[in-house]
């Protein structure tokens, strides 16, 4: 069995994040970069499946040199090998370009049974990449999954979104994107950290993935960030002390805002 897990390195959500002045892409110079926490759960799920099915787990990440740290982290957690797609021309790639590149990288792995991804990354939050990758690979997609069961030929998933809960089933191979509810990721063990150094990581550029492809034709980003403004600071809110009239105050407040 072969599992491919797609991961992304993102700015630490605990730290302050910034966009660069010129093109409003991520300012990597001044941010702490970490393995995305939803993607980390996709990796954890892959490793749990590895424990029960003896699968080989390949971790794939697209990003600059530093993205190798996130690949190593998943290798330290227990994955077997890594593919790092690293090419300066991919800076600022949008979801379609990203998905095309990732799909091409998945195709380099033989006999893939399952592709796992996070349902979103905590930076862009477009939530589109897994679906596009599935489409490009012609795989059934089971997205927003909070529980996953695999048998030899099929995958069953509990899907949970704001719209409700559904049970999905599909034959393998398939693509599954998971939510942060699916599991608690493990800490890499020291043995895992030391072993990760010796695990193979293939670094590929665009020319390796798309031999002969015309750069300009391929690298059309369909989206461009024109402007970015920081979210306004939260205002303090209104504090209502209940001296017997709080209910009326709340009602007045809602009426004044035409919310009831």
């Amino acid at each position: 069995m072969n599992i491919v897990v797609l991961v992304k390195q993102v700015p630490d959500t605990a730290a302050e994040r910034a966009l660069s002045e010129g093109d409003h892409t991520l300012d990597r110079e001044n941010t702490d970069l970490v393995l995305d926490e939803i993607n980390e759960r996709a990796a954890e799920e892959a490793l749990r499946l590895k424990a029960t099915t003896d699968a080989e787990v390949t971790v794939v990440s697209m990003g600059p040199d530093s993205a190798l740290d996130s690949i190593r982290k998943v290798l330290a957690m227990g994955a077997d090998r890594g593919i790092h797609i690293c090419d300066d021309r991919l800076q600022g790639a949008d979801v379609v370009t990203t998905a095309r590149v990732l799909a091409a990288a998945v195709r380099t792995v033989a006999d893939v049974d399952l592709v796992l991804a996070g349902n979103a990354a905590t930076d862009g939050q477009a939530s589109a990449v897994p679906a596009i990758v599935a489409d490009l690979l012609g795989l059934p997609q089971l997205t927003h999954v909070r529980e996953l069961v695999l048998d030899a030929k099929r995958v069953r998933a509990e899907r949970e979104t704001e719209g409700g809960e559904t049970t999905l089933e599909a034959p393998l191979p398939a693509l599954v994107s998971v939510t942060e509810k699916i599991n608690e990721p493990r800490y890499p063990s020291f043995k895992g950290i030391m072993a990760a150094k010796k695990k193979p990581v293939a670094t590929i550029g665009l020319d390796g993935l798309f031999p002969g492809a015309d750069d300009t034709g391929f690298l059309v980003s369909r989206t461009r960030v024109v402007e970015a403004v920081p979210r306004p600071a939260r205002s303090a809110g209104i504090r209502v002390v209940d001296d017997g009239l709080a209910g009326r105050q709340l009602a007045d407040h809602l009426i004044a805002r035409k919310l009831v």
Binding site: D69, Y187, I193
Partner: peptide, 14 residues
């Protein structure tokens, strides 16, 4: 080394 930093940060996170 990377490995030393990784071990340190894993303990810190735990």
């Amino acid at each position: 080394t990377d490995e030393e930093r990784e071990i340190q940060s894993t303990v810190a996170r735990f």
